[in-house]
Computed example of a mutant assay.
Amino acid sequence: MSRYIYLGIVLFGLLFTNCKEKKTEPLPEQPKETTAPEPPKKVLSPHTSAMAMIGDAHIHIDYSSPGVRGRIIFGGLVGYDIIWQAGAHMATWIETNKDLVINGEVLPKGKYGFFTIPSKEDWTIMINKNWNQHGKDDYDANDDVIRFKVTPSISDKITEHLEYKVNKLSETEGTISLAWEKITISFPFKINQ
């Protein structure tokens, strides 16, 4: 038995000595966790504008341009016979530094909300005193300065993003157009002399 005790003491001594003499090396540095910055989210309805000089009149249209993205737009996303802010988010607005004549009526120089009521046949265009509103939340027909109808043209070609254009026809005349999905509407205007 004393032999086993002796052997136990020797083993314990060896272990104790090995543990004391064993050098511990520092752990290798762990790579720091890095996260790549997230790419900026793609804006689905980018804010944009259309403008032109017609003679000395500056016409400016400001809007957010939603995409079709495989959806049915008119009669789907944008319901028929319902007021639409003619863009996304904030109401589309139009500004002119000269009086314009649209559909035989004078639009005094200034800034206006631009609204439509799409339908299968004719669209109603409304140019409204209240230009600074979210969507059509505060639309009031009593604030319409000019209201008239246009007939849309339908194309087989899809315009992916809503697009406005101000086209110069002469030094005193132009057109304003809106195109999205397969629909284009357009109306003429004159500079009020």
Score class of each variant (00 low, 15 high):
Gly55Glu: 07
Leu14Glu: 01
Asn130Cys: 06
Leu77His: 12
Asp56Trp: 07
Glu33Phe: 13
Cys19Pro: 00
Pro39Arg: 08
Thr172Phe: 07
Asp122Thr: 00
Lys41Val: 08
Tyr6Trp: 12
Leu11Ile: 15
Ile102Met: 05
His47Cys: 03
Pro108Gln: 09
Gly55Pro: 03
Glu121Phe: 07
Phe189Thr: 02
Met53Asn: 14
Asp140Asn: 15
Ala91Cys: 14
Thr34Met: 13
Ser155Arg: 05
Lys42Ala: 10
Glu173Val: 02
Glu29Asn: 13
Pro37Ser: 14
Ile83Arg: 13
Asn128Asp: 09
Ile183Trp: 02
Glu33Pro: 04
Asn167His: 05
Lys120Ser: 11
Gly8His: 02
Ile72His: 11
Thr92Ala: 12
Thr184Ala: 04
Leu107Tyr: 01
Asp143Thr: 08
Glu173Tyr: 00
Gly110Asp: 06
Lys109Phe: 05
Gly70Leu: 10
Ile54Cys: 13
Val150Arg: 02
Asn192Lys: 15
Tyr139Trp: 07
Thr124Ser: 04
Asn192Tyr: 14
Ile54Tyr: 10
Gly110Cys: 07
Lys190Pro: 01
Asp81Lys: 14
Phe114Tyr: 10
Arg3Thr: 13
Gly76Met: 11
Ile117Cys: 04
Met90Trp: 13
Ala86Gly: 07
Ile82Thr: 13
Cys19Lys: 06
Gly110Tyr: 07
Gly70Trp: 09
Val43Glu: 12
Ser64Leu: 04
Phe187Met: 11
Ser155Tyr: 05
Asp144Tyr: 05
Glu163Ala: 12
Pro37Glu: 13
Glu160Lys: 08
Tyr164Val: 06
Ile191Met: 08
Asp56Met: 09
Ile117Met: 09
Ile83Ser: 04
His161Gly: 06
Gln133His: 10
Thr175Ile: 02
Ala91Ile: 02
Glu33Leu: 15
Ala88Gly: 12
Lys42Glu: 13
His47Asn: 10
Leu107Gly: 06
Ser170His: 12
Ser2Thr: 09
Thr124Pro: 01
Pro26Met: 10
Leu77Cys: 04
Glu171Cys: 03
Gly174Phe: 00
Gly55Phe: 08
Gln85Asp: 08
Val145Glu: 03
Val78Ile: 15
Val166Ser: 09
Gly70Asn: 10
Pro26Phe: 06
Gly76Thr: 04
Ile125Pro: 00
Ala50Trp: 06
Asn97Phe: 09
Phe148Lys: 08
Ile125Lys: 02
Asn192Ala: 15
Ala57Ser: 09
Lys109His: 08
Val43His: 05
Leu107Cys: 08
His161Asn: 15
Met1Trp: 06
Gly174Trp: 03
Ile154Lys: 09
Ile102Trp: 02
Met90Asp: 14
Asn142Asp: 12
His58Tyr: 14
Asp138Phe: 13
Thr24Cys: 02
Gly113Tyr: 04
Ile183Tyr: 05
Val166Gly: 04
Trp131Leu: 02
Ala91Arg: 04
Lys136Tyr: 10
Glu21Ile: 06
Gly67Lys: 15
Glu25Ile: 07
Leu107Arg: 02
Ser155Gln: 02
Lys182Ala: 05
Pro26Arg: 14
Glu105Leu: 11
Asp81Val: 11
Phe187Asp: 01
Val166Ala: 11
Ile146Asn: 00
Phe74Leu: 09
